[in-house]
Each structure stands twice: as C-alpha cells, then as structure tokens.
C-alpha cells in the first residue's frame, strides 16, 4: 500500500503555492515534511487530504486514485488526518468522540475498539469528560485516537508537536511509533526540524512549493539547498 503523489500543483491567483510535487511513500515509512514558512507544506497537506481542489496532479493509495476524493472518502479509504489546531468535537465526551467514527474499515465490534483505543492513548481517566475541557495536548491525543479508530493505512499530520509540552510530546511520539509498528505509514508536516530529523526515517524538504531535497535525516541536514532555504542568502 504505497502512497504516491505525482505532479501535484496548486495555484492561488498568480502564486504557485505547490509546484509539481512528486514523491512516493512506502508502507510503514515514517516521513517528515519540512520547509520554511510559506513553502507550501500545509497547502500540500490540505491538497492531499482533499480539503482544497488541486489544479493538477494525481494522488493514489495502493493504486487507488484518490485525486478527486473528498475528505470523508479519503478517510474511508484509509487516509487519516490531524490538524494543526486539534479539531475535536467540543461538546461531546471523549468516548463519544470515538464512537462517532464510522466503522467502515473494521469487523471488530465498536465497543471493543473504543475500549482498546482508550487504553492505547491513555485517556481513560477523562473518558467521560467533555472534550472542550481537555488540555491542548490531550486534545491532540484525542484527535489521534480518532484516527486510530479509522484503522488508517496512512496518517497525515499537520504540525502535531506545536504547542505541546515535552512530556506530552513523548507520549504523542510514543503513540505514533506504536501505530507505526503496526505498519501504518506517517507523513508529518513539521516546523521543528530537530524533532523531525531525530525521529523520522526520511525527510522531504519543500521550498517555494517545490521539493528541494528528499532523503535520510543526515543527508537533509547537510544538503546545501536546505541550508540555503532555511537561512536565506
């Protein structure tokens, strides 16, 4: 189930925010997507997630064309997604947040899956708390728990570590690694290069809408174009 992105392009008026971006991600990879401000990371992620219409290009998961699929269709096909500001359902309890996930991709009874997920993300102590009362980090965990309920093949994450304290960062990362071990692919947009190069097996760097580097964290750190993009000249 490889995830392939081919020639994806998005223009806003005269500005090309994402410019002919292509890459392939294999099953079980843990990939970071970095780039300076305005490099088109979030636009690309929104394009892959079906939130904005792409001007050109193809997105496919395991050979299924998902280029024109709306977000809910992508979710049903196994593309999970989290947001920079967690989008939890504020007026519902934590458990209800999980129950409402459609069960299209699993044969196990939902009750068991909710219980298992609650255990996995360690939110049991706040199971019946209204979601808006959770801390910022807990909301990120809850959002990820909802993605777990989807039983996704690939998870797209937008700045999962922004505004998260170090302890919470560890539990979030732990959860992501655990999911990764189950064979789930990750594509993480992140601002914080240190976290990415430390934890990802592969890093893609975007600048001015184009892929300027794609390789191991070591390669990326030493790539002159990446350094130039970040420092400017």
């Amino acid at each position: 189930m490889s995830f392939s992105v081919e020639h994806v392009t998005k223009r806003y008026g005269g500005v090309t925010a994402v410019d002919d971006v292509s890459f392939q991600i294999g099953k079980g990879e843990f990939v970071g997507l970095i780039g300076p401000n305005g490099s088109g990371k979030t636009t690309l992620l929104d394009g892959l997630g079906g939130y904005i219409r792409k001007d050109a290009g193809r997105v496919a998961l395991g050979g299924h064309d998902l280029s024109k699929a709306p977000p809910y269709e992508l979710a049903k096909r196994g593309v999970g997604r989290t947001f920079q500001v967690p989008r939890v359902f504020d007026n519902m309890t934590v458990v209800e947040n999980l129950y409402c996930v459609p069960a299209a991709r699993s044969s196990e009874p939902k009750e068991k899956r909710v219980e298992d997920t609650m255990e996995m993300v360690r939110l049991a102590s706040v199971a019946h708390e209204i979601a808006k009362n959770l801390s910022g980090g807990q909301k990120k965990l809850l959002e990820l728990a909802r993605v777990v309920m989807l039983n996704p093949t690939i998870v797209l994450m937008d700045e999962p570590f922004s505004g998260v304290d170090p302890a919470m960062l560890e539990s979030l990362l732990g959860l992501m690694r655990e999911m990764n071990k189950e064979g789930r692919t990750f594509l993480i947009v992140e601002h914080n290069i240190a976290v990415i190069t430390k934890n990802c097996g592969r890093v893609i760097c975007l600048d001015e809408g184009k892929v300027i580097a794609d390789g191991s964290p070591g390669d990326i750190r030493n790539d002159p174009r990446v350094i130039e993009a970040y420092l400017g000249t």
Partner: peptide, 18 residues
C-alpha cells in the same frame, strides 16, 4: 453522535469519514 460531530467541527467530521 455524527450529527453532533458535524455541529462541533464540520472539517473534523469530514476527516474521520463522515
């Protein structure tokens, strides 16, 4: 529950397959 999810956050609801 899914209807309430839409009320609370429509984009979030779409992201989980609704």
């Amino acid at each position: 529950l899914r209807l309430m999810a839409i009320r609370d956050d429509e984009e979030g609801a779409k992201s989980i397959g609704i």
